[in-house]
């Protein structure tokens, strides 16, 4: 599905770059927030794999 496109990591050193960004944004709490986000994204991806939802409406209301 197309929701994956937005989640595709940047091509060079995705993990490292994301970690550094998280550290800059959340400081000492970066690891905690990153863990919560990882769990949530996994949950979302799993739901989508399982249920194969289609976009509604098919055409975006607002571009």
């Amino acid at each position: 599905g197309s929701w994956r496109n937005s989640m595709a990591p940047p091509s060079e050193r995705p993990g490292e770059r994301r970690g550094a960004e998280m550290k800059k944004l959340y400081g000492e709490d970066a690891a905690k927030i990153q863990a919560m986000e990882a769990a949530m994204q996994l949950n979302f991806d799993r739901h989508c794999d399982l249920k194969q939802p289609k976009y509604w409406p098919v055409i975006p209301l607002k571009l």
């Binding site: 979302f44 939802p53 509604w56």
Partner: peptide, 18 residues
């Protein structure tokens, strides 16, 4: 309501009454 992606771009839902 089912789930949201972390970038808040999409919500996954069930039984959507259109």
């Amino acid at each position: 309501f089912g789930a949201s992606d972390i970038d808040v771009l999409n919500f996954q839902v069930s039984d959507l009454h259109t």
